[in-house]
């Protein structure tokens, strides 16, 4: 997430229990955290629970916050863990640290889609239907790939920060990011190829 443009949040003030500074932190980070939770869970009620729980936990844990990671990375880590707990209730076998999660292995034998759709007009690339397709393509990614993609490409964390938020290695982040991006590209290529035929 982009750090807030206005005055940076003061960790010192937060630790002092300054409520107005805490409110400012909530306003700076609630949208990115809600967005992450929505895109991880696809359920508004669960996403709202994750949002509330993230800030409640942050409030309690602030005295122990050492500032070794940035405030945003720290908040993301709390939020990701909350969201993963929700997902594990649905899928108890899910583990982020297991190297080859289901569907995460090399997509052997799949032909790469070679369709040069990148030059289609923006009005078609971002039509209502296209936007739905894009969101669904992200939803379809296996959780272990999706969360990496969301943190890195949607929230704009670095590889390092993404690894830190998820408690996995940078190499694992890179591998999953590559897989996620290639899968999304293939999904979108399938869709836009059909649109190109129409015009």
């Amino acid at each position: 997430m982009a750090e807030p443009e206005k005055q940076p949040i003061s960790i010192e003030a937060l630790k002092r229990g300054d409520r107005s500074e805490f409110a400012r932190m909530v306003d700076s980070y609630s949208l990115p955290i809600y967005r992450l939770a929505m895109r991880m869970l696809s359920n508004p009620q669960e996403a709202e629970d994750v949002l509330q729980e993230t800030f409640l936990k942050a409030l309690r844990a602030l005295p122990k916050f050492e500032g070794r990671s940035s405030l945003s990375t720290w908040l993301y880590r709390i939020a990701v863990n909350e969201a993963l707990m929700v997902i594990r209730k649905r899928k108890p076998e899910l583990s982020l640290s297991r190297p080859a999660e289901d569907g995460e292995e090399e997509d052997n034998g799949e032909e790469m889609q070679i369709v040069d759709w990148g030059h289609m007009p923006e009005s078609e690339l971002l039509s209502l239907e296209a936007r739905r397709t894009i969101d669904q393509a992200v939803d379809k990614l296996p959780e272990t790939l999706r969360v990496v993609f969301l943190l890195r490409d949607v929230e704009g964390l670095s590889i390092d920060e993404t690894a830190d938020s998820l408690g996995i290695s940078q190499a694992a982040v890179k591998t999953r990011l590559l897989r996620a991006r290639l899968r999304l590209r293939d999904e979108l290529s399938n869709y836009y190829r059909e649109r190109m035929k129409e015009t």
Partner: peptide
């Protein structure tokens, strides 16, 4: 084409 459409894919999701 793969590189171009990969870049485009990322930027479309961001948009």
């Amino acid at each position: 084409v793969v590189v171009d459409t990969l870049r485009k894919t990322i930027s479309l999701v961001q948009t």
